[in-house]
Design a binder for these strands. Structure first.
Lengths: 223, 223
DNA sequence: GTCTATAGCCCGATAGAC
DNA sequence: GTCTATCGGGCTATAGAC
């Protein structure tokens, strides 16, 4: 009985530490985030970081494991849809319009999902953490890349390869361009907010962004 | 005589400190970069940071002033060209093809300049510094934005407004999209290198990127 | 599982010699 | 203009009481 309760309490401590770590590491970066601040933000004793995660670095990795899991669960449904769809048809028998009719809605659905993820306040910290890792990759980037980014890229590249009937290299470059059209709303967010005189990118702003983004993705994919 | 030499020596120290600071702050971020490391990288005594810049923060701002000046000098020629061109014609008298013929080459020239800047090793540190500031803006971002980013955005938005004969808001959104198409090659550089099996983005890779980027910009601007 | 206390180190900044 | 020496404080990690 007591063992069970103790284990439960431990799990809770683990969880609040990870949740606080996502916020603090995103705000301050790995080096500037102090263990004192991490413990304080989690309302937990300083020594427990070492007890549960064998140090600050361990907590950092645990934070990335959590956000990667959550990212995957957001993207997986549409990613699976694309995978299944690509395997379902014999694409060589379909003409350009046929391929477009089936695949374009899937691509735009992926774009919607991704853009909402990128601009939502919920994922603000996740994007910051991953962008930081892009600039100076550590083991944490390796984990996110192989677990989340690469599988997602692979599906979109395959989709665009069939959609345009082109080679792998060009499909990849177009995929990066599409990604750029989406990511810009997160990456230069501060500049965009200043220029558009917005204070946030919420539902209202998203309704202005989405049509432009859709049009631009279609333009880029079929250019 | 001696005064002059002393002043010269001081200027040199100032300069090597700033150059080292650009490297170190870009690599480590403001908090994680230590004054000892900054002084060591510049091969200069620790106390001189305080003597010349009144502290670490002052050196940080001086680094941003330097990169902003250099960015401006790289972009100014084509920015001025656009400004002059926009003022030169009476655009209401020109039809769509006429406007396109004059303005599209200017837009692509700006894109070339910007993409080369973004992918060059020389500016790797500049991009890192500015991207960090985008995520957590300080006074340094304010400086880069008002001195470099806003003036540049203003010209491109004006150009696209005339080119598409559209309103300010849509022109701005398209400008951000174009920016996304360019910036992606820096922002997700690590992911792209992994996926394309490149080790760098040099002249060779740029020759593959440029046609795709041009095609995509045209597609987005005229979609 | 949680806490206090502390070891050992690195930090930014400055005083004062040269 | 440059250097050494040092202050006061925050850092990560851990030992040991509860």
């Amino acid at each position: 009985m007591n063992e069970f309760k103790e284990a439960e309490r431990g799990d809770l401590t683990r969880r609040v530490l990870i949740d606080a770590a996502i916020k603090v590491f995103a705000r301050d970066g790995f080096h500037a985030a102090s263990t004192r601040e991490l413990a304080h933000a989690a309302n937990v004793n300083l020594a427990l970081i070492n007890y549960y995660f064998k140090g600050k670095q361990g907590l950092y990795l645990a934070a990335f494991e959590k956000i990667t899991t959550q990212l995957k669960s957001e993207i997986s449904p549409v990613e699976d849809k694309i995978r299944l769809c690509l395997e379902k048809y014999d694409w060589s028998t379909l003409d350009k319009d046929g391929r477009k009719e089936i695949l374009l809605p899937l691509l735009l659905e992926m774009a919607n999902t991704f853009l909402k993820l990128l601009t939502s306040d919920k994922t603000k910290e996740w994007a910051q953490l991953i962008m930081r890792e892009q600039q100076e990759p550590t083991a944490a980037f390796e984990y996110v890349f192989s677990t989340f980014i690469r599988p997602m890229l692979t599906q979109i590249i395959r989709l665009i390869k069939v959609l345009r009937n082109t080679d792998e290299e060009e499909a990849a470059m177009i995929t990066f361009s599409v990604f750029g059209l989406l990511a810009v709303w997160r990456v230069v967010r501060t500049g965009i907010l200043r220029r558009m005189k917005w204070t946030t990118i919420g539902e209202e702003e998203l309704q202005k962004i989405l049509p432009v983004v859709h049009r631009n993705i279609i333009a880029v994919v079929f250019a």
